[in-house]
Design a protein around this nucleic acid. Structure first.
Length: 528
RNA sequence: GCUCCUGUGGUGUAGUCCGGUUAAGCAUACUGCCCUCUCAAGGCAGUGAUCCCGGGUUCAAAUCCCGGCGGGAGCACCA
């Protein structure tokens, strides 16, 4: 039918035409007689709010978990995962577990356990239980032994290169032929005699599998570094693949979310649990979240910090939670944003615009409006009032402030371009000024009657103007290259009232944009 | 290279499982108007997608099937 649309179209339009000749009332009554169901209003499909329903989820029976490795500061990617984990637990009246996945003592540090908690706290993500994978290390050993005893795992003492070459070439390892006694003996030796790199426990997968993850993956290995919590009490550490499966299962997790790059590991996850006859959670993956030109990976960030190209993990150009906070992005905005991205596996380069827009709407109503002048020029105005009261917000009642005037003010040089003697300017909140002289600038105060047409400018009193710096962050990377101009600094004058604001307070500098007070001397540009 | 995942307006998504009632909803961006002592917020309207491409099944496909192509990820004794 579709392919014949050209021939059919004229026929349709002639029919429609002839029907349109019939009066509307008659059309209606005929339809009512012949096809009454056509007139019944179809119920509109309901627009779904928030995340899609979870497969196999039962009200009151859902347990999710957020399993960060304490190896760095939390960033927007952690936020996405944690918020999704929490939202689903909430949606089904379930529970959220925060589990520090600390099975690689080489990478983990105590300060990061705390930093992650601080980040979640700030985000408003509440968990019902906290634990560490390392709490269960003895249990993990037990499960590992069970795998060995059941013939599902064996001890391998090959060199690392041999192991990876065999995996690449799909060749079985000679160690996998070893008898149980040999495995048990080697297992014992992992705790005493062997050194790091000399022995590993391998799951008996399938060296011929298309899925490289299944080619006899590592379950336990020796790491001699000091663990942030357990110090040097242990040297045999379970691998991620082994520990998540076991932990999720024993923690009662029903739905385990992880990012897409783990997708190939699902087969292993389920196979391990099958081998141990343990309950299997449902693993579901979602896409990683990143912003354009705002890398999240420590591999890229660390050198930047070491070379002092960024000031630290709270540099306002970074997508860490600390940085976002410092920049003035609110946790509410982050949550809305994450939820707006949906639960999808499609690769996402998130629109920072949307985050800013959501944030703006949240902070607008309690951002105090203040005057700020960049590229200042002096102006002397005769006949001004001595003091005025300015509202802190144009529509919301968030107080007023008194300003003591004198005749010397600053205004922005951009605002006096093409200004001629006799022109009028509206000094916002103050009144109208007629220019009497241009170099130096002078004018007469001519009353505060509101006139629609004259340009409105913001101004600052010279004698108590506060000089501050505003940091304006922009994209850290353009393509692959570091953007040398990613942090603009401008020196500006602001009203003295600035000094009375608490640090962290969000301000809207009139005709400029939203900024967050970082210190007495510095504010950070949030967004327009 | 091999394997897996993914592909809806400028951007992010809803709808895809159970094909029609929507030639596609929402947000953001953009444009215009209203409001306004801000280039903000708020209100209203509008622009913008033949749903990656090509075939097939069907009376009917964004939705099902096959084949391409684009993008991402994995191929660690890291998580």
């Amino acid at each position: 039918m579709r392919s014949q649309v050209k021939e059919i179209a004229p026929v349709i339009s002639s029919i429609v035409n002839s029907i349109n000749q019939i009066p509307f009332e008659q059309q209606k009554s005929e339809i009512e007689k012949e096809f009454p169901d056509l007139l019944v209003e179809k119920p509109k499909k309901e627009e779904r709010e928030g995340l899609p329903p979870l497969e196999g989820a039962q009200q009151g029976n859902v347990i999710t978990r957020f399993p960060p490795e304490p190896n760095g500061y939390p960033h927007i990617g952690h936020a996405k995962a944690a918020i999704i984990d929490e939202e689903y637990a909430k949606m089904y009246g379930g529970k959220l577990i925060l589990r520090f996945d600390d099975t690689n003592p080489e990478a983990e540090r105590l300060e990061y356990y705390a930093a992650i908690k601080v980040g979640l706290d700030w985000l408003g993500v509440k968990y019902d239980r906290v634990k560490n994978t390392s709490d269960d290390i003895e249990l993990l050993y037990k499960k590992c032994l069970e795998l060995i005893n059941g013939g599902f795992a064996y001890l391998c003492t090959c060199k690392q290169e041999t192991v990876s070459a065999n995996r690449r070439e799909m060749k079985a390892c000679k160690c996998s032929l070893g008898k149980l006694e040999q495995n048990l003996e080697r297992w014992e030796k992992m705790f005493s005699k062997y050194k790091q790199g000399e022995a590993i426990v391998r799951f008996r997968g399938d060296m011929k599998s298309e899925n490289t993850v299944m080619r006899d993956p590592v379950m336990c290995r020796i790491i001699e570094a000091k663990h942030p919590i357990l110090s040097d009490r242990y040297r045999v550490w379970p691998s991620y693949d082994f520990s998540v499966a076991i932990e999720d299962s024993i923690d009662g997790v029903t739905h385990a979310f992880r990012t897409k790059e783990y997708e190939l590991r699902n087969e292993l996850y389920y196979t391990i649990l099958d081998a141990l006859k343990m309950r299997k959670p449902k693993v579901i993956e979602f896409s990683r979240l990143g912003f354009e030109g705002m890398p999240v990976s420590k591999r890229i960030l660390r050198p930047l910090i070491e070379e002092c190209k960024v000031s630290g993990y709270d540099d306002p150009r970074l997508p860490t939670l600390e940085a976002l906070k410092r920049r003035g992005i609110t946790p509410e905005a982050i949550r809305k944003f994450v939820l707006s991205l949906g639960f999808t596996k499609a690769d996402t380069l998130a629109p920072f615009d949307t985050l800013e827009s959501l944030n703006r709407k949240i902070i607008d109503s309690d951002s105090i409006r203040l005057h700020m002048v960049k590229n200042p020029v002096k102006i002397r105005i005769l006949g001004m009032p001595h003091t005025i009261t300015m509202p802190n917000h144009p529509t919301k009642d968030i107080g007023t402030r008194q300003i003591t005037l004198d005749e010397n003010l600053y205004i922005e040089s951009e605002d006096i371009k093409n200004l001629k003697i006799g022109d009028e300017l509206r000094f916002m909140g103050l009144g109208n000024v007629q220019i009497t002289k241009t170099e130096p600038l002078e004018g007469n105060y001519i009353g505060d009657e509101l006139k629609a047409q004259i340009p409105k400018v913001q101004w600052v009193v010279q004698k108590d103007a506060q000089k501050i710096k505003i940091l304006i962050p922009s994209q850290l990377f353009i393509g692959e290259v570091f953007n040398e101009k990613s942090l603009e600094e401008i020196d500006v004058f602001v009203e003295s009232h600035y000094s009375q604001l608490k640090e962290g307070k969000e301000i809207q500098f009139v005709r400029f944009g939203y900024c967050r007070k970082d210190s007495v001397l510095q504010a950070i540009y949030t967004h327009k």
